[in-house]
Design a protein around this nucleic acid. Sequence first.
DNA 1: AAGGTCACG
DNA 2: GACGTACGTGACCTTG
Length: 948
Amino acid sequence: MAEKHHLYLVDGSSYIFRAYHRLPPLTNPEGTPVGAVYGYTTMLWKLAADLDAAEGPTHLAVILDASGVSFRNDLYEHYKAHRPEPPEDLVPQFPLIRDATRAFSLPCIEVPGLEADDLIATYARRAQERGWDVTIVSSDKDLMQLIGEVATEFGPAKIDMLDTMKNQRIWLEEVEEKFGVGPELVGDVLALMGDAVDNVPGIYGIGPKTASKLIAEHGSLTAALDSAPDMKPSKLKERLIEGRADAELSKVLVTLKEDCDLPQPLDEMVLGPVPPEPLAAFLQKHGFTSLLRRLDAGAGSPSRTTDLNPPKPTTAGANGSGDGSRQPLPEMAPIDHSAYETVQTLERLEAWVARATAARLVAVDTETTSLDPMRAELVGVSLALGPNDACYIPLAHGGTDMFAQKPEQVPLAAALAALKPLLEDEAVLKVFQNGKYDLNILARVGINVSPIDDTMVISFALDAGRGEEGMGGGHGMDELSQRHLGHTPIPFKELCGTGKKAILFGEVPLDRATAYAAEDADVTLRLYRHLKPRLAVEGGSRVYERVDRPLIPVVAAMEREGIRVDRARLAKLSEEFAIEIGRLEGEIHALAGQEFTVGSPKQLGDILFDKLGFKGGKKGKSGQYSTDVSVLEKLAVEGAPIARKVLEWRQLAKLKSTYTDALQEAINPATGRVHTSYSLVGAQTGRLSSTDPNLQNIPIRTAIGRQIREAFVPEPGNVLLAADYSQIELRLAAHMAGVDSLKDAFAQGEDIHARTAREMFGEVTRDTRARAKTINFAILYGISRWGLAGRLEVPPEEAQAMIDTYFQRFPGIQRYIHETLESVRAKGYSETLFGRKTWFPRINSKNQAERQGSERAAINAPIQGTSADIIKRAMARMLPALADAGLHDVRMLLQVHDELVFELPEGRVEAATTIIRQVMADAALPAVELTVPLGVDIGTGLSWDAAH
DNA sequence: AAGGTCACG
DNA sequence: GACGTACGTGACCTTG
């Protein structure tokens, strides 16, 4: 007969709470508290090492509580409502529980909307039905209902519990002792006595003693309650009669749900040998040295056998798909547009609001007149509570020429008043796709939505960099829907068209508008169910919960603030530029001997190299001459006046079209300010990007360009304050690569490029410092002798010699590059200090250029990405920190990668400077303790230019 | 829609 | 033997 299967189900969430109070407050080398994690790790160790013992596990999984709410909140709104906030130094340990579990290569299961108890109950019953024994590692009394042995067609199968804190097995005797009844009646006892921790009411005045006595006497809750009218008059009698409803509700609350949909089959929980990696790295990282020694010694190391589920390294090569994110499609009903409701009366709207409030989780989408959230008008709102359980609430349809007949709709003000309590209810999670947009729309009508989740941002935390060029790599709804749900949503342009013939969403007939809008909410909810559980399993929770998610409302608020721009000043610059451009154009045509389009690189190349016969024309693969700045510079130096003129023309044309003209257009007529839009998923490294207009590339390097910055101004009585991290990427490189001499230089506040020049060339001159600066940046970007040679205008051999010297002078850099690449090749992704992943599906490509390109990007990503994490953390903390200091009138306006721009009353500069510097300098703490200081330069002035 | 160019960190 | 050589972005222009 085959070995008897024995499944261990570890209740991870309850363990950590108890371990927290029983263990000393350890911290890891990074300063993160890890006492409870340490307890958890040693427990896993013991369990996994028991693999060969008679009662030891053959299968094992860790079950966690997904954040948020469950079906029990539908039944009883106060369920778990009195639960205190977890202690501050426990909070950062929650995600580490998942890390620890993954370090042991064990399955870690959590499902939003399901409590760990229900998952455990369902798994335990499934296993028991198959004749397996089950041990539940927990001391939660609710779970004691499951204990016992049943006969199955495979023989007897029992469920028991193990309290690892007390090192005690819990079986029938222990249940009897605690409750005075068998496991099958534990729920009835709990229903009478209630549970203060979970806020299960029970019957007031009935405690454990009375409850078990009553249940033991009468044999069930119902019988006990039924007997009350016949009892002789007493307090107890009254309480039983009056509390009947409470008791019955409590019974439902404590009854475990044994028919959950299970995300992972039992067979995949087979306990294999614990591979030494990533366990060793985890132990190392958190300073669990005694365990690390045991692992190294192999003594008592957790177990043997075959690993059925080895972590799959992404080795995208020629096929390059990088589709490790693809999972079996979740089983959900197919999208059915006919199932959606068009909500046209206040009664129906209120019914939806009530259902959503009870559900505690609702997907929301807004329909508007524009992609610009600062100009858009709200046209309708859609909600989804479950697959195909969605509605569209039209609010501003009709009333235009095309659609003059206004359909029946809930009046806007009444609808917003009905929606506001739901959208602002802290106990109801609102799920969006790109929620920043909807947050801005709703904020403009007076609704401050909270709390929220965002499927787009979740996708980014999971899959940044995955997918192929040109398709499938993005995080937009249509792509996500296709990738994860196998469904193509109705395209927007099918309703509204494009170009001149486009109509507004409010002009779309209600049936089609409902199909489109409700589908968006439906798809968002389905995506959420698919993506959110992956965060914990794949290690995206840390960066999503601690960095990106808190940032969404912060960035939304910055966008709504906008920044004042002096239109007259820009107009004047435009005019001056236009005159100069016209003058230059005439001169260029004269030098060329003919008129042509100066802005056409093709025509310009032909004029320069064919007609005028200049040397040095290089044709690219398109067969066109290159005429970029380096080519024209060279020609100019060699005495071609036309090249200089073209360079000047280009600079002015660029400044005029991209900045002085376009920025005037971008001023919002209602606010008089420019509101950019930041993308939270724009850059694969985790940086923000800015569009419409891009305020992250306003000129600064040339005097003529800086005039544009003078047009960014504060309101009267205020100043602009610019705070930027000094050399943050080099500092992070010094920290991450462990380069002592660079760390020293930063600690001493030295000029880092000068220091590099001294180390490399022995002396610091203008020239050697400039070269050193180039080399420093080359390192950050992934160096090649050819690239450096091109920049420094030296032969490749000489560039190689400099690289060698650099590596020799700054030991650590070469090792960092090597180790980073090895890790990315093996795992498929890089990671920042805060755990942000960037995928590199082409890192093992056979195409050399492709592969080397990926390698350079992979060297840079952890550095650029860590820098992005740090400033994002600073942003999330900034306004609360300022408010704590009484500075409520400081506004955060812009982020430019290593710089934050604020607007504040003149009198607040001194106080604000202190707070801003401190928040930025300490932004890595407490998660990461850097071995270099983060320097912050702060300036103020009456324009963005003057603030630098 | 693509390619070239150039603005920023 | 040719290729293409620094990371990450977005906007504008011309051309096809």
